[in-house]
Structures are given as structure tokens and as C-alpha cells.
């Protein structure tokens, strides 16, 4: 227990962004479920679900702006991008850790520091998420929000059904992402360690 020290890993803006995003995404999934499956789900009326979904959608889009402003403003965005040289070996090491070594109680090959927060699997997942999936979901959501006004852009993408298909497939992706992401967050040195860190900003380092 002597080698334990606290490192400041999540700056305040990141923590604010993260929890708004988390709550927002869960609510988008729930209202989205109501919208698409009005025949099966009846938590709200369809009218309420659509209104809620639209408002929360804008909160999440605004919040994404906060993420962009913080990471690009401070230049910290580089923690999302792997170093080409060590990328492949690190990925393999990390996969072996999650698949095998973790069960044996071996230490995580990745050492968290404020400048190197994510392991290479996290880097891949989060780059895809923040630079491709989130923007695509926000753009298709925005187009679906005012089908009539954005008709031109919707037709450029191939029609309302195509735009909706993208939005729906990503919806399923985000639904499962939230579950997997929450589970992975229990893989810290104690099950609640990462959760605590996302509130306080401090992670224990061993």
C-alpha cells in the first residue's frame, strides 16, 4: 500500500462534459427506443418522447462543443492519438491483458498519466466514437429534426430512409456501447475506482 499515490487525471471540464454526455446519451437511448418502438415501449407518449429527444439531442450537441473546445483549446487532443511506433505492440499487449492476464491478477500493461491517459484500445475506440460516430449521429439527428427544411441535404445523402438507417444503426451501437463502457469502467484496481475518479478527478496509481 506504500506505493499508492494520487494523480490528477480528469480535469474539471472533462468531468462536466462526461457526466452531461452520459446522462444525455442514456436519455437519448430511452426516448429513441420509445420513438422507434412505440408499438412495444410505452414509457412516454410518442409526442413527449419526440419533444424530449429533440431537446436532449441539442444539449448533447452543445456538450460535444464543450469537449471540442477543451481538447482542442488546450492541445490535449493528442492523448486520443496513438504513437505510431508503439501502437501495434501495445494493442496486442492490451488485448492479451483484457482477454487473459486480467484474470490472473497481472498488472495492467498501460500506466495512466495525465498525458497518456488511454491505452491503445481505448484510443481506437474513442477516436472512432468522438470523430466519426458522434458527429454522424448528431448530423443525422439534426437532419431528422427538420425533415422539411433539410430536404436538400437529406436527398443528397440518398433519402430519408438512408439518413434514418444511419441514425438507427448508430443508436443500436450507442445502446450497447453504454453497457460495455460501463462494464469496462469496473476493471480498475477496484470495481468503483474509475467511477470515483470521474467524479473527483483523481485516480490512484500503483
Amino acid at each position: 500500500m506504500d506505493n499508492k499515490k494520487l494523480i490528477y487525471i480528469h480535469p474539471l471540464p472533462v468531468r462536466i462534459w462526461h457526466w452531461i454526455n452520459a446522462v444525455g446519451m442514456v436519455m437519448l437511448v430511452v426516448t429513441g427506443l420509445q420513438i422507434r418502438f412505440a408499438d412495444i415501449v410505452s414509457l412516454f407518449t410518442l409526442e413527449e418522447a419526440i419533444t424530449l429527444h429533440n431537446y436532449i439531442g441539442f444539449v448533447v450537441i452543445g456538450n460535444y462543443g464543450l469537449w471540442v473546445a477543451f481538447y482542442f483549446g488546450t492541445g490535449k487532443i493528442k492523448i486520443y492519438f496513438p504513437t505510431p511506433k508503439t501502437f501495434l505492440p501495445n494493442t496486442i499487449k492490451q488485448m492479451k491483458y483484457y482477454g487473459v492476464d486480467i484474470f490472473k491478477g497481472d498488472p495492467n500493461p498501460h500506466h495512466m498519466t495525465p498525458d497518456n491517459k488511454f491505452n491503445s484500445l481505448q484510443q481506437q475506440a474513442y477516436v472512432g466514437l468522438m470523430f466519426i460516430f458522434m458527429p454522424l449521429q448528431m448530423i443525422t439527428g439534426l437532419l431528422l429534426w427538420r425533415v422539411n427544411d433539410f430536404e436538400k441535404y437529406i436527398n443528397m445523402l440518398g433519402g430519408i430512409k438512408i439518413v434514418d438507417t444511419i441514425h438507427v444503426l448508430l443508436f443500436f451501437f450507442f445502446s450497447i456501447f453504454i453497457v460495455v463502457h460501463s462494464y469496462l469502467a469496473t476493471l480498475g484496481h477496484t470495481p468503483l475506482a474509475h467511477f470515483k475518479a470521474m467524479f473527483t478527478g483523481f485516480e490512484e496509481s500503483h
Binding site: 420513438i35 422507434r36 418502438f37 412505440a38 408499438d39 410518442l46 436527398n155 440518398g158 433519402g159 430519408i160 430512409k161 438512408i162 434514418d164 438507417t165 438507427v168 444503426l169 443508436f171 443500436f172 451501437f173 445502446s175 450497447i176 456501447f177 453497457v179 460495455v180
Partner: peptide, 28 residues
């Protein structure tokens, strides 16, 4: 998708997408 420009939210949804979604969720 023969009617790419007509979608009544939920009402004329493509069932295949729901099956894909279910598979994704089951796998995850």
C-alpha cells in the same frame, strides 16, 4: 429501400435493422 424517400417514423420501419440491432446488443 425501394421507397428511399418515404419513411413514416416507426410505422414503416425496416425490420431488418431491428434484427441487426438485436444481434449487436446480444453480442455486446
Amino acid at each position: 429501400y425501394y421507397l428511399k424517400h418515404f419513411y413514416a417514423l416507426g410505422g414503416t420501419r425496416i425490420r431488418l435493422l431491428d434484427q441487426i440491432g438485436l444481434a449487436m446488443i446480444a453480442a455486446g
